[in-house]
Amino acid sequence: MAKLIQVTNLKKIFENGSETVHAFGPLSVDINIGEFVTILGPSGCGKSTLMLIIAGLLESTSGKVEFENKLVEGPKTDIGIMFQNNTLVPWRTVKGNIELQLELRKLSLEDYEDKVNDILKSVNLEDFAHRYPNELSGGMQQRAAFCQAMIHEPKIILLDEPLGKLDAMTREKIRADFQKLWMIKKPTVIFVTHSIEEAVQLSSRIILITPRPGKIDREMKIDLPYPRDLKLKRSAKFMEYVNSIEEVFHEYGVI
């Protein structure tokens, strides 16, 4: 597999006056094209920070990030990004919010007209295209935010706990939908979460991060066929992955 991102000896220390917080590192990791990589770790282990540094949206203290062998020095723009608190703006409709991504990137709305409709359909939001975010449920908002992050077909999608605020049932449903969407084009995804089950269900590889200062405890390839549906989730192999990860975090006293 071709290498897309190379992270070498990356370290982040936050300095706030006399107070310093060692967020994570030094750590090194490679991400290949088409991989669904999950950064899994307890709260405060610096996994979101790591994701932002990879995207060039935050500066590291030391070490380097390379995208296709080019050093990342400023914000990367060929990415799609999505957070727990979504980036839908209240003054635009669902469709308008998706188009905001295109407008900011100077992409023609006409060229993308069909794509916008298709992506809305793929997350079952076609009837809500002209609704405002505050008229939607939390789950629908995250679906819309997902469309916003994906519409320009970025090389890499960064997801920072996108389902963190949703209830368990909605989470389950949207997870399955995300997976379906991901399987169509298989873009490279970096997914940040602290849900072990979510990580095992979605990822092709999981990077386990220790409590702060975050370091890579181990990497784990998830060798299960896609789509990983409810049936697969009840299988012994799935449970085995979940259990072995729980074991790791149990040793750290996290769970």
Binding site: A55, L57, P75, T77, I81, F83, L104
Partner: peptide, 16 residues
């Protein structure tokens, strides 16, 4: 989040 979002689009200051 919105700040990071518009930074990731590379849009100009006037546009944002």
């Amino acid at each position: 989040e919105l700040t990071l979002f518009y930074q990731s689009t590379g849009a100009s200051r006037i546009k944002t």
